[in-house]
């Protein structure tokens, strides 16, 4: 069972990467990378069970954290052109 679903998940990781490459706008690419990260978390968790090493779950947890933070950081960079600007100050103006 684990082998079959690990293979399917590897295939869908490949599909997510292809959609990140052919995406037209930058938001399509960010969405594809976000999907790739979620699928990778599931892949690491499954791979830990496949090789009988559940310690891999710690890596999956950290990968989930990094995936969320990287998505928010890239979005902030594309929306404001700067990592350090506060979104609250800009909300006052006319966007």
């Amino acid at each position: 069972m684990f082998e079959i679903s690990t293979f399917i998940i590897l295939f869908s990781m490949f599909l997510a990467l292809v959609s990140a490459i052919i995406g037209k706008t930058v938001y399509d690419k960010i969405l594809a990378v976000n999907i790739f990260g979620t699928v990778t978390v599931l892949f690491i968790a499954l791979f830990g069970f496949l090789t009988k090493r559940p310690e891999f779950l710690d890596i999956a947890l950290v990968y989930a954290l990094i995936n969320f933070i990287s998505t928010i950081a890239i979005l902030k960079f594309f929306e404001y052109g700067d990592m350090s600007s506060s979104s609250i100050e800009k909300e006052e103006g006319d966007i």
Binding site: T25, L57, D58, A60, A64, L65, F68, I72, L75, E79
Partner: peptide
């Protein structure tokens, strides 16, 4: 630990999707 990963993903992915939709709307899509 698996339950913690599940809860964490269920909290963070809608936040990321909302941020994506909001900035795409501001990015004139």
């Amino acid at each position: 630990k698996l339950l913690l990963i599940l809860i964490f993903i269920l909290i963070t992915t809608p936040t990321a999707a909302h941020a994506l939709a909001k900035s795409a709307l501001h990015g004139k899509i």
